[in-house]
Structure formats: C-alpha cells, structure tokens
Nucleic acid binder design. Structure first.
Lengths: 154, 154
DNA sequence: TATTGTTATACTCTATAACTATA
DNA sequence: TATAGTTATAGAGTATAACAATA
C-alpha cells in the first residue's frame, strides 16, 4: 500500500502476451532503422517488398495487405512513382483500378534496403538461433497467409 | 515495360522478411482492437502489462522496455494515475527516480482487457494451431528477453 | 557533470469526409 | 448504387529541446 492505494501483488507476473511482445519487437526494429541506412523509409520498404511478392496487385489490395488506408496509399505511391521505384497503370478490365508494380530501379533499391534491414533483424533477434529465426519467420508467414491486415474502409 | 519503364520480373518474389511480417501482424492487431472493447487504449495495455510483469521497475526502465520516450511516458503515467490504474513513488535510494506499479484496480482493468485482446489474437492468429501459437509466443519472449526496445535518449 | 523526470513545442503519421470516374 | 482512387483537412501519435531536481 502506498498512500492508501492497494498495489497489485502476485497473480499474473510473467508470460507477456503476444500483443505486448509483437509491439516491443516491432518498435525495436523501427527504432533501429534509419532512412539513411535503408536508402528509403520503412513504409516504402514494406510497400515495395509486398508489391514485389505480388506483382500486378491492385492498389486497393495492396492497401488491405499492408494496412495502409486508401488515401495514405495514394500519397505513398505518388512518392514511389516520383523516385521511379514503382508504377501504376490502369486495369484494362476495370478502368477504376490501378495495378501497381515495382520497377527494376525499385527492385535494386529494395535489395539494398534489405541488406540494411537484415543487420537490424540480426541485432533484434540476436537471442534466437538460426533455427529459431527460421521457425519464427515461418510462423509469421503462416499467420499472415490467411488474414489481411485490414485497411479502414470509406 | 510500361511507358518505357522497366518492371521488375522474377528474382525474389516470395519469402517476406521478418520486418514486413511483423509490421503486418502488429498492424492487424492494432486495427482490430478498439478502446471500447479493451476498456483502455492499447498503449495503456502494453504499459500496464509490462509493469505488472516487472513490479517496482523505474519509470526510465519502463520507457526503455516498451519503447516510449521519457516525455511521452510522463503523460501516459499521468493518465494511468488519474484513472487509478498505476502509481508512482520516489525511489528512497535515488530520489531522482520514480518506481512505478500497477494498482489492484489497474490489475482488474488489465485482466478485463486481456480477455478482449485474446479474442483479437485468436482472430489474427487463426491460421496457427495451438502448438504453433505457443511456439510463436515462446520465440517472441526469447527474442525480447535480451534486447531492450530502446527509447530515444535526451 | 550526468541522470531522471518534467514541460512546451514541433513534427510525422494516420484517420475522416467529401469528391471524381468508372462499373 | 457501389467501388477505386483522389484530395483536403483534422486528429492522434511521436520526437526534439530546454529546464528542475538529485546524484
């Protein structure tokens, strides 16, 4: 008791939930990366990496997948087009849609950023063995395979 | 080629990196939680959960662990004290420091929020078996055990 | 002189709403 | 009438800098 206010004792004192751990780990990566080292912002990296893995995806689907609202994605893709890293083209089958792709120049920038990201991941995941890291990557991929991040709808 | 700009073809098209996956998963959780369902904000949850697991931790250490800058932590803890969920007291051995704790009231609110968080985690991690989830939680805890998130220093 | 915490402020990121065009 | 994308704006979140108290 401090000043008459009861303090929590005992009960659940360990076992941090997945949400807390994911938050910590993600923040750890974000705080250790810098635009200078990556050659791009982390949000550029995430968008380009997803676009490379899903060539010709629609702008809308991209936003759903990486959790960026449609309006913010417009701005992000504008910037990626200005740097020459990505391209939008109209979907001939549905002229409302934009199909997005990484350019060769974007792929080169992405590859460079991946080198820098790997160093950060090595640091943040230093406590894990190579086998542990492979398992972690596999489980994360499996979890994301089914469920979209879910961008807000208008 | 589109308008003379070369598109990236082939090369790395799968295997999303850990950073991208962690970003997606964490965003997925954040987007699915609401203050109404949790009874608190997610940042309150993260702070309280860490404080409960590390009773009597200093304010500075808490900020390091959960990746909240010292100035923002002041505001967050002010709010947690106003709601009666946390307490600060001076460290008698070093009167510059504040030691923080979850109150019994805070522990009750935290337990309620954990119920809501668990439902969200169930949804986001639906593709994983119970065994997979346990492994994921173990690996995340192992990774975080060593490396602090690293709040910015003044 | 360095550290902990605080305050004030500026900046970035994200979300909300209204609009255009296509279906 | 609904969907994809855009624009403008407001709000939340986060970082930077200067300061007070204590070591």
């Amino acid at each position: 008791m401090i000043a008459g206010v009861p303090i929590n004792r005992g009960g659940n004192t360990g076992e941090a939930g997945v949400t807390v751990l994911l938050t910590q780990l993600t923040k750890g990566i974000y705080r250790r990366t810098s635009e200078a080292e990556l050659g791009m912002r982390l949000k550029d990296f995430v968008a380009l990496a997803y676009m490379r893995a899903h060539s010709g995806i629609s702008q809308h689907e991209l936003g759903e997948a990486i959790g960026v609202d449609a309006n913010n994605l417009v701005i992000l893709l504008n910037e990626l087009e200005e740097t020459g890293w990505a391209l939008r083209r109209r979907d001939p089958d549905d002229r409302r849609r934009h199909l997005v792709d990484v350019t060769s120049k974007g792929a080169a920038a992405l590859a460079k950023a991946e080198g820098a990201i790997t160093l950060v991941e090595d640091e943040v995941l230093a406590a894990l063995s190579a086998s542990d890291r492979a398992t972690l990557a596999r489980l994360l991929a499996k979890a994301m395979d089914r469920v979209p991040v879910g961008a807000a709808q208008n």
